[in-house]
Amino acid sequence: RERTTFTRSQLEELEALFAKTQYPDVYAREEVALKINLPESRVQVWFKNRRAKCRQ
C-alpha cells in the first residue's frame, strides 16, 4: 500500500474533528471518511498517529 497523502481540505476536516474529540466513534469516523473521500481505516490510523503526535 502506498503512503496516503492528505490534501489540505482533508486535513482541515480531520483536525476539526480532532479538536472536538480525540477518540471519535466508528460513526463519526465513517461520516468524515465519506465526506473527505477516504476509507474509514485511513481515518482511524490518522487519529491514532495524531494522538501519538499530541503525546510527544
Rank of each mutant, 00 (worst) to 15 (best):
L11R: 09
D25S: 12
T21S: 07
R51G: 02
Q56N: 14
V43I: 14
K48E: 09
N37S: 12
F47R: 00
E31V: 10
C54K: 12
F47M: 05
E31G: 07
L11Y: 06
R29M: 08
E2D: 07
E13I: 07
E2Q: 08
A28T: 08
R1I: 15
E13W: 06
P24L: 02
T7M: 03
L11Q: 12
R42S: 14
E15I: 02
K20M: 07
E12Y: 04
R1C: 11
E31Q: 11
I36L: 10
E15H: 05
L17C: 06
Y23N: 07
R55T: 12
E31H: 11
I36T: 12
Q10G: 03
E2I: 07
R51K: 03
S9T: 14
R50C: 03
F6W: 08
S41H: 10
R29D: 00
A16W: 05
P39F: 03
E15D: 05
E31D: 10
R3I: 15
D25M: 02
V45A: 09
E13P: 04
R8L: 10
R50G: 01
A33L: 00
A33H: 00
S41W: 10
P24C: 00
D25E: 07
S41G: 09
R51T: 03
A19Q: 09
T4N: 08
E12D: 15
Q22K: 07
Y23M: 06
Q10P: 03
C54Y: 13
R50A: 09
Q44H: 10
L34G: 13
E31M: 14
A33G: 13
C54H: 14
R8I: 08
R50D: 00
E40F: 05
D25G: 09
L14H: 00
E40C: 12
E2F: 06
L11E: 15
Q10M: 06
P39S: 09
A33N: 01
A28W: 02
A19P: 02
E31A: 12
E12H: 08
K20W: 03
L14A: 00
E2S: 05
E40A: 13
Q10S: 04
S9A: 14
K35V: 02
N49Q: 10
C54T: 11
L38T: 09
W46A: 01
F6L: 12
T4Y: 13
R29N: 02
K48R: 11
Q10D: 04
A28G: 04
K53F: 12
F6I: 06
R8G: 10
K53S: 13
T21C: 06
A16Y: 15
A28V: 08
K35N: 09
P39D: 10
E13L: 07
K20P: 01
K35S: 05
C54P: 12
T7F: 03
V45W: 15
R8Y: 11
T5S: 08
V26T: 11
R51M: 03
K48D: 14
Q56V: 11
R50Y: 03
L34N: 09
V26C: 13
N49P: 00
L17D: 01
L34E: 11
L34Y: 07
T4D: 11
T7G: 05
P24N: 02
S41P: 12
T4M: 13
Q10K: 02
Q10A: 07
T7Q: 05
L34M: 14
I36E: 02
L38Q: 09
Q22S: 08
L17A: 05
F6A: 04
N37E: 13
E2T: 07
T21W: 04
R3K: 14
V26L: 15
A19V: 11
R29W: 02
R42Q: 15
N49G: 07
L17Y: 02
C54I: 14
Y27A: 15
R8W: 09
Q22M: 15
R51Y: 02
E12M: 12
Q22W: 11
A52D: 15
L14P: 01
R51F: 01
T4P: 15
V32I: 15
E40N: 05
A52R: 11
A16E: 08
Y23T: 07
L17H: 02
E15R: 02
T4A: 12
V43A: 04
S9R: 11
T7S: 08
N49Y: 08
T5R: 10
A28L: 10
R3F: 07
Q56P: 14
A52M: 09
L34K: 14
R55G: 14
K48L: 08
R8V: 08
T4S: 10
S41L: 07
R1L: 07
R3A: 13
N49R: 11
R3P: 10
T5N: 15
S9N: 08
P39Y: 01
R42V: 13
R50M: 11
R55V: 12
R3G: 12
E13D: 05
L17E: 04
S9P: 10
L38I: 05
T21I: 09
R1N: 05
Q22E: 14
K20S: 05
K48H: 08
P24Y: 00
W46S: 02
T7C: 08
N49E: 12
A52K: 10
L38E: 14
T4W: 03
W46T: 01
E12P: 02
R3M: 12
Q44R: 11
A52P: 01
L17N: 03
P24Q: 00
N37P: 00
K35I: 02
K53Y: 07
A52Y: 08
E15C: 03
R51D: 02
P39K: 09
F47T: 00
P39G: 04
A52F: 08
R1V: 05
E15P: 00
E15F: 02
K35A: 06
K20Q: 07
S41T: 12
R50N: 07
R50Q: 15
K35Y: 01
A16L: 10
T5Y: 15
K48C: 10
R42N: 09
V32T: 14
A52E: 15
R51W: 02
A33Q: 01
L34R: 15
E13C: 13
K48I: 13
F47K: 02
T21V: 07
Y23A: 06
Y23K: 07
R1Q: 07
S41I: 08
Y27F: 15
R51V: 05
L34V: 13
R3H: 11
A52I: 12
N37K: 12
A52V: 09
T4H: 14
S9L: 13
A33W: 02
E31W: 04
E40Q: 13
L38K: 05
A16I: 08
A19F: 10
T5L: 05
T21Q: 11
L11H: 13
R8E: 13
C54S: 15
A52W: 06
W46E: 00
L38W: 08
L11V: 09
Y27R: 14
E31N: 10
Q10C: 02
L34I: 11
V32P: 00
A16H: 09
P24K: 01
R29I: 09
I36W: 09
R50E: 14
R42F: 04
A33S: 10
L38N: 03
A28D: 07
Y27L: 15
I36M: 09
D25Y: 00
K48F: 03
E31S: 12
V26E: 12
R55E: 11
R1K: 14
T7V: 04
E40P: 11
K48T: 14
A19I: 10
Y27Q: 08
K48S: 12
D25H: 04
R3Y: 07
K20Y: 05
E40L: 13
Q22R: 13
C54Q: 14
T7P: 02
R51L: 06
E40V: 15
F6P: 04
Y23F: 12
K53L: 12
W46K: 00
D25L: 01
R3T: 12
E15W: 02
E13K: 05
E2G: 09
A52S: 08
V45F: 02
Q56S: 12
